Computed example of a mutant assay.
Amino acid sequence: MELRTLEYFVAVAEEGSFTKAAARCHVVQPAISQQIQGLEKELGEPLFERLPRQVVLTSGGAALLPHARSCLAAAAAAALEFADRSGLLSGSLALGTVGGLEGTYIPRLLGEYHRRYPGVSVSLTGASSPSLLTKVRDGGIDAAVVASPPEGLPASVGSRVLLEDRIVAVLPAGSRAANRPLRLHEAARSPVISYGPDSGVHAFIRDAFAAKALRLDIAYATNDVALQVALVAEGVGIALTSHASPVLAADPRFVVVPLEPAIRLRKVFVWRLGPQLGAPLRTILDLWTELSDGPTLAGATT
């Protein structure tokens, strides 16, 4: 069982097509098919069910997939380890981010990482916290900044706290004193502008309303904080949004007030735990420690 064959197998599994897998691996389709047939013969059972328009994993293929990914990851980590030892770090780093991070030290972290390790190809994916957390857990991306879910993080990921955040209410200017908290039952009586159900922040607001036996009806659901407050300025309703967003800087069009009771959450940097971290991920964690004076590390294997 060769690494190249496992690479072809994973490509077919992820693409659902021999043709797409061949294009991804920069080989002709017969080469992919021949390698997969040889692997099936070696293992003694079919790995794919060939359908008219796609191929899908059999039970045997599904059993092999995590092992194949682990083997490929271990081989890549070994190669990067020795590249790192020679001072020529290369490879790739796939990161996910939620919105509202421009006011944190994430841009500085990525800027410094780019300057120190120009040989590493860094890609960013923007999405909601639940989606990104799933991608990290399943190995789709290396790490991500997410809102830590109310039920806690899965045991399979490590984490570092980026910031402590809270939800605040944004109201039209002149409608309320900035030092006068807004109670949740008051918020429930107004058209609410806030995050959609696909957002990790939504769960915190939903649970806080439920704890007070209040129904959360979001009239205007958007994860774009700038749009949320723009709608407030137009008199559409009140926004329940992240206090950490730089969009909430002093603006004469609206007033920002605390909620009562407070709704608190954390933004965290998460990555998938394993026997050994790849060199690009390990170096960004080391740089995080250097730039942030060593924040608390949860569940690390480094």
Rank of each mutant, 00 (worst) to 15 (best):
P150K: 01
P150R: 02
E151C: 01
E151T: 11
E151V: 08
L153D: 06
V157M: 04
V161W: 02
V161E: 07
V161F: 03
V161D: 00
L162A: 03
L162E: 00
E164D: 13
E164F: 13
D165W: 02
I167L: 15
I167C: 14
I167V: 15
V168G: 01
V168I: 08
V168Q: 00
A169W: 07
A169Q: 04
A169S: 06
A169L: 04
A169R: 05
V170K: 09
L171N: 03
L171I: 06
L171W: 02
P172Y: 06
S175I: 05
R176S: 07
R176K: 04
R176M: 08
A178E: 14
A178T: 10
R183Y: 09
H185Q: 14
E186Q: 09
A187K: 01
A188H: 00
A188C: 05
S190K: 14
S190E: 15
P191V: 09
P191D: 09
P191T: 08
I193M: 05
Y195G: 04
Y195C: 07
P197S: 10
D198G: 07
S199T: 00
V201Y: 02
A203D: 12
F204P: 02
I205C: 08
R206P: 00
D207S: 12
A208G: 03
A208E: 01
A210M: 08
A210H: 10
A211D: 13
A213H: 14
L216P: 07
L216V: 05
D217S: 13
A219P: 00
A219H: 13
A219Y: 07
Y220L: 15
Y220S: 12
Y220A: 12
T222A: 12
N223M: 07
D224W: 11
V225T: 15
A226G: 14
V229N: 09
V229P: 11
A230I: 09
L231Y: 13
L231V: 09
V232M: 04
E234A: 15
G235K: 13
G235F: 08
V236G: 02
V236R: 15
L240T: 07
L240R: 09
T241K: 05
T241R: 06
S242G: 11
H243D: 13
H243M: 11
H243V: 08
